[in-house]
């Protein structure tokens, strides 16, 4: 058997699709989690710390128990604790949620690195991939369509949230609390409690995003595992205007664009790679500028959100 044939320039679109699928999942989970949190009227910039801690604890638990799924569960649980903590602290009057988020980012990353040293060298069992490329004989396509179940779960979650925000009691509660605490109180809701749960769920999802990083792709724990994905995901929520499906597609777009720099070099476009690596950021900025306008910049923004007030 000879090695797989080169696919030349087709490698670029393939890498973009494959990259979108491989790289987007952490953005999807953090983004959806943050969408829930922000819909309740709080912003949690600490998601970056939650993501990194989730990556570490997920990896560590997977090594110790031999089960990557237990790792995901542990990451989710720890993320929820981080979220609860953020939600609890911010329920006190005058405490700034943005600032607490930045401090939590510092704490989360710090704790992850502090406790993560023994897990850098050993290899943990990876989450299994589902091969959606069975119909193709081309190994590159097979590889690009190796999809992790968390990605599919992320898509399902986006669809579910999109429906649930509009059609369920809890979705309505969340939105009322996010748009006006006054109105929520008038309805007999306790805004702080709703926000507490929303932040906890958001943190739990961010933890899962972290576990994906360490247990599937790139599939290793090290101190540089996140190059700001958690922070960027929070930004993508604003970009997606607090819409779960928008969030999903924003994550795909961002992940795909991120594959451009390496894909172009692999087909021989070798100059200016720093600029190609900046493509996701440039693209996001351009789309945002093109789709925003002076008057409707806050369409979809929860009225209680400090960052858009």
């Amino acid at each position: 058997m000879s090695g797989p044939a080169a696919i030349g320039l087709w490698g670029v679109p393939l890498a973009l699709i494959g990259g979108a699928i491989r790289v987007s999942t952490p953005y999807i989970f953090v983004g959806l989690g943050e969408t829930i949190t922000e819909r309740s009227g709080r912003i949690n910039l600490g998601q970056e710390g939650t993501l990194v801690f989730g990556a570490m604890i997920g990896y560590g638990v997977a090594i110790m128990t031999g089960s990557p799924w237990l790792g995901v569960a542990a990451a989710c649980a720890c993320g929820a604790v981080f979220g609860l903590f953020h939600g609890w602290i911010c329920s006190f009057p005058k405490v700034n949620d943005i600032a607490i988020g930045i401090a939590m980012m510092q704490l989360g990353v710090g704790l992850a690195i502090f406790f993560g040293k023994p897990f850098i060298e050993p290899a943990a069992p990876h989450l299994p991939a589902i091969s959606l490329g069975w119909w193709s004989a081309v190994p590159q396509i097979k590889a690009a369509l190796d999809v992790n179940s968390l990605f599919i779960l992320g898509l399902a979650l986006a669809l579910f949230l999109n429906w649930a925000f509009r059609n369920t009691k809890y979705g309505l509660m969340l939105r009322v609390v996010g748009d006006s605490a006054e109105a929520a109180r008038a309805m007999g809701l306790n805004p702080n409690r709703v926000r507490l749960y929303a932040t906890a769920i958001g943190g739990g999802l961010a933890g899962i995003g972290g576990a994906y990083l360490s247990l599937y792709y790139p599939g290793s724990w090290n101190e540089g595992i996140s190059s700001g994905q958690g922070l960027m995901a929070v930004a993508l929520v604003i970009f997606a205007r607090w819409n779960p499906l928008g969030c999903f597609f924003a994550a795909l777009l961002f992940g795909g664009a991120g594959a451009l720099g390496t894909a172009l070099q692999s087909v021989g476009v070798t100059q200016g790679y720093y600029l190609f690596y900046a493509a996701p950021y440039v693209l996001t900025l351009i789309i945002m500028t093109a789709t925003s306008s002076r008057s409707d910049s806050l369409v979809g923004a929860p009225g209680e959100l400090s960052i858009t007030k």
Binding site: N96, A103, L107, G108, G110
Partner: peptide
Amino acid sequence: PDATVQVLQGILFITILF
């Protein structure tokens, strides 16, 4: 480990902001 400073800073900032 070096991350101790980050942990310390995180804790201090949270208490001060709180």
